[in-house]
Design a binder for these strands. Structure first.
Lengths: 224, 224
DNA sequence: GAAAAACGGAGCGAAGCACTCCGTTTGGCA
DNA sequence: TGCCAAACGGAGTGCTTCGCTCCGTTTTTC
């Protein structure tokens, strides 16, 4: 098959624009949460509003797509972690990769958009793969035994919500961007160290229920 | 002086309202960042908009007051930490107390309000007292030596930005609120464990510059 | 029962929102 | 070279939400 994968230049631009849009949406969401506006996203991506709406029929559709990508990223990071021979290195890889993408960024829009089947399926797979990562590390004795997969999720969500790098980028203080990213990496390293086995102080309270993370996404039953 | 501190009932209500306003503002800021609206704050506090504006001439003034309170809280927590005999317990107390109040909540409005002298003075004192807490722990050998005061600040800011409890409260899922708070405490405990001396992996990169935290608050020099 | 003080919220002009519509630009092809 | 389809950017639209003012009401005091 001598299939020519020649991409038309206009089509290539469209693809670049799509990537820029999703990246911009991710940043806007990290900075402004649920109040992120389509105008801000398009402008940040260097793309006209018209082009945004040619690709996504509504703002909600764009956000849903972004959620799918974030979940995919999470799954990939976990699978790559499982591919590591060293279970501890697997955890480290997973957490670091997730924090960089920032799945916690999606949390603020929980409950404001409809959960598609695509999203739900990805979320299930997330649970699966994360639990596998955690139990392998538990079995190897490298992860503190009282940490659950839900604990890990919350930690990653928390660490990924650092607005500092994006805030600095948004303010145009580019000379500080490297320093901000480095600083965040240090915080992640500290937290990772706290996950290691061999600690003395047990975690407080009961292990968190996984439903805690899911329920946010369901529409509210009724108003009081 | 037999000064009668009898408080008029109407004056007591005013005080209660003020407290409710500040608490509501804190929550609104945690949930909506810089987009938090005065209407939402007043409504959440169960107070009329008119009453809000009788106490604070502008939204900015309210936020400035809130920043002062947050900085005071930070300072108090550090001083109480220093009062502990055990340097490690001091760190733990400081971090836990700060996360509960959530000074990281103020980060999103950095650069959108003018920094008053009151705020600047408090910020200086914060630096001072935090550095004291950290160096005492370093001297005692209980805090990992490569952690700086700025690292600690970033960690606390990060941990304090957990939106989960407030998000759940906002959605009216009160039955989950306790679980959410407990879950957050576990994450904090994990991070604290990572601060302990005796860890093997050194922190990546160079120690962060303190200016990283300050520059956000200064108005931008000019638009590109 | 009148003055003072604190209250809640309707209303205002301005700003911001999601989204539509359309004139322009670009590359492929006869 | 001229024409068409495709992708483009952004002004315009109706509507919501914003910060804030203004005012009628309620409560306390004397």
């Amino acid at each position: 098959m001598t299939e020519r994968t020649r991409t038309a230049p206009r089509q290539a631009e469209a693809e670049r624009n799509d990537r820029a849009l999703l990246e911009a949406a991710r940043r806007a969401l990290a900075l402004d949460g649920a109040h992120a506006s389509v105008a801000a996203i398009a402008s940040r991506a260097g793309v006209g509003i018209g082009s945004l709406y040619r690709r996504y029929r509504t703002k909600e559709e764009l956000f849903q797509r972004l959620c799918v990508l974030a979940l995919d990223h999470w799954i990939d990071a976990a699978e790559q972690g499982l591919a590591h021979e060293d279970p501890w290195a697997g955890i480290v890889h997973h957490v670091s990769a997730c924090v960089d993408f920032g799945p916690g960024t999606m949390a603020p829009i929980a409950g404001t958009i409809e959960v598609t089947e695509e999203m739900a399926a990805r979320a299930d797979r997330c649970d699966e793969v994360t639990r596998a990562l955690v139990s392998r590390a538990h079995a190897a004795g490298v992860l503190r035994p009282d940490v659950t997969a839900t604990d890990l999720y919350l930690l990653v969500e928390q660490l990924g919500r650092s607005p500092l790098p994006w805030q600095i980028a948004d303010q145009g203080r580019d000379e500080l961007l490297g320093a901000a990213t480095e600083a965040r990496a240090r915080v992640v390293a500290i937290a990772l160290e706290g996950l290691r086995a061999g600690t003395v102080t047990p975690l407080p309270g009961r292990p968190p229920d996984a439903g805690l993370l899911r329920d946010r996404w369901e529409p509210l039953p009724a108003a009081g």
